[in-house]
């Protein structure tokens, strides 16, 4: 016998996840347009690997396989990993990353809804620490044919070929130049001398980021996500990079470069919005997202890694229970009262 409410809104985890995947499509389209179809191969690889890993571990954990396999959460994780990794990494790296995300970061913590860390970012962080070399090659827009890309993914081309067809990401290139050339270099000179720079950020990158932005706005309209997380993340990143470039324009890139030059848009709408591992209270979401932006900007500006989003997300994931506890919203009729923890 079930109890009230007997009326249920037609909503499901599956429909949420599928709409998230749909929202990724504009970004993916731009990706393919500028960097070639390799990303589609990676997405396919990641999808298969995610479903296989999910099915295997569900079976081992004696959980209903079909119910959870069709919820779409593994697919979202898989796609986000594929979109975060460089598109020309060897196939086994993608598969390994997805397997780690699903098996270790998700299921060893208890499966859907239980993982304290964002699975995609756990996998990304592990890969960038374990295989920094492989993770630094991004395709030059329009440089490689699909066949060459295919060979890179499955047959690991010789380094010389690789160098001809790939380059560092715009963020990475800028950071490396500023670090190695010391005080002589400035943001303007580095960017001017780099052929991969587009209108205001990386060539192609700005369009892909624009695609993610479009998808993200659609998710907002669909009420899949709330404005708090993306707004706080983008605003903080904008403010920090803006302030830094105003103060020292020679050594700090401006806000547009930060927002559109790396994974910021993907993170803002798709990665940090993973509800399971993010803060949940309205105020907490603002703190959580701002914290990620801060860590990201620090790592980008002063760290040794090309991008800092993954570490930012993971570090803030740890703080989520604390943030949530201290930001419980006031309850009806208790608006002036103290929060539970006191």
């Amino acid at each position: 016998m079930t109890n009230s409410p007997y009326l249920l809104k037609p909503a499901s985890v599956q429909s949420i996840m599928l709409r998230v995947l749909a929202a990724l499509l504009p970004g993916i389209a731009a990706y393919v347009w500028f960097f070639g179809a390799a990303i589609l191969v990676q997405i396919a690889l990641a999808t298969v690997a995610a479903l296989a890993a999910e099915a295997l571990i569900l079976k081992l954990r004696d959980k209903p396989v079909m119910l959870f396999l069709t919820d779409g959460s593994a697919l979202v994780t898989a796609w986000l990993i594929a979109l975060s990794l460089p598109p020309l990494v060897p196939w086994w790296l993608t598969v390994l990353a997805v397997a780690i995300a699903i098996i270790v970061a998700k299921h060893l913590y208890g499966g859907l809804g239980q993982n304290p860390f964002n699975p995609a970012m756990v996998a990304f962080a592990l890969m960038i620490v374990a295989y920094p070399q492989l993770m630094s090659h991004w395709p030059l827009p329009g440089a490689a044919t699909f066949t060459q890309q295919w060979q890179m993914i499955f047959h690991a081309l010789a380094p010389e070929t690789l160098d001809a067809l790939t380059s560092a990401t715009p963020l990475d290139a800028l950071r490396t130049a500023l670090h190695t050339q010391g005080t002589t270099a400035s943001v303007a000179s580095v960017l001017a001398g780099n052929g991969n720079i587009g209108q205001f950020a990386g060539r192609g990158w700005e369009w892909v980021a624009g695609g993610y932005l479009l998808g993200g706005l659609w998710m907002l309209q669909q009420r899949i996500i709330t404005w708090h997380l993306p707004a706080a993340f983008l605003a903080t990143l904008f403010a920090l990079s803006g302030a830094a470039s105003l103060a020292d324009g020679a050594h700090h890139a401006g806000p547009l470069f930060h927002l559109f030059g790396g994974g910021a848009m993907l993170a803002a709408f798709f990665i940090i919005t993973d509800p399971v591992s993010a803060a949940t209270t309205p105020k907490g979401k603002l703190i959580f997202a701002a914290g990620i932006a801060l860590i990201t900007w620090i790592i980008r500006s002063f760290g040794a890694y090309p991008d800092g989003i993954a570490f930012g997300v993971l570090l803030m994931n740890i703080a989520v229970p604390l943030i949530d506890m201290y930001t419980q919203p006031a309850v009806f009729g208790h608006k002036k009262e103290d929060m539970p923890h006191e």
């Binding site: 004696d62 959980k63 209903p64 396989v65 079909m66 119910l67």
Partner: peptide
């Protein structure tokens, strides 16, 4: 004094 029971968590095994 009747108490509402703990909701049963229905984890149905896969049909197979």
């Amino acid at each position: 004094t009747w108490k509402w029971k703990y909701p049963i968590i229905e984890i149905k095994p896969a049909p197979a």
